[in-house]
Design a protein around this nucleic acid. Structure first.
Lengths: 123, 123
DNA sequence: TTTCATAGTATCACATTAGAAACCTCCTAC
DNA sequence: GTAGGAGGTTTCTAATGTGATACTATGAAA
């Protein structure tokens, strides 16, 4: 096993879609979101990838899943744990860095991610 | 093309070895490092991967390469640009987050990355 | 009883990445 | 002329990641 903390962490958060999913969970004022809601917000993601990533993130304690089985058909609600919320500031720093040094994206520059309505668009 | 800044940035920095290479370039007091020096410090990396990542990072303006052709055989020196140095604080935040929420690594917790002698060990 | 919505899973195929091993070039020193 | 170091490149293969599409289960509503 690799011994480097950075290396191991990138195996968790470096995967495609992961940060986008966290960002979507962070957006808006409702702290719980459903599967199809996320699927709709992150355009281009397949249910398979969303399912896979959500499972990984849950295993790592970054998000949590709550199932409401009184509502029928049963509904799943995803939300961030404390560790996930703590990670948001890193995502925002990455965004700031990228906007300074790599990309020009005025829309992104202006809006706080929490209230950003950008979606990841399919190619 | 994807429109999300986060998404695009992860394509740059989310690749295997990338952050480890940046961290190695940051370490110590000498700001320039040679190819084989990096290869030796990052145990497990193949020359191919190191070469590929260095090229990518150079293209993105995160590191720079200087070739000294007066010395023979010619030597290459790699160092961080301003944008690379600015990125180090994000790497450190990621490390702090990981040590808080994901891994227990006392060696990592104690040392400032700049003077960390940990190497990425092969499995 | 057919359709709809939610929340996924299954299957298959393709593309990309990563790694191992060998090789190459330039020059120096023996 | 042969070995050796620096700084890579080439080739081939294996693993992994990703995506398209279709399918499933449950129950409500029409």
């Amino acid at each position: 096993m690799k011994d480097c903390t950075i290396y191991k962490t990138m195996d968790i958060i470096g995967k495609r879609w992961t940060l986008c999913i966290l960002l979507e969970l962070y957006k808006g004022d409702n702290n719980e979101k459903q599967f199809n809601e996320l699927k709709g917000m992150i355009k281009g993601i397949t249910p398979k990838m969303l399912s896979t990533r959500l499972k990984e993130l849950e295993e790592q304690g970054i998000i949590r899943k709550r199932v409401d089985s009184t509502a029928l058909p049963a509904r799943s609600f995803y939300s961030m744990t404390e560790s996930g919320i703590d990670f948001i500031r890193i995502i925002q720093d990455i965004k700031k860095w990228a906007l300074t040094w790599q990309f020009d994206n005025p829309k992104c520059k202006m809006s706080e991610c929490k209230y950003c309505t950008n979606t990841v668009t399919s190619k």
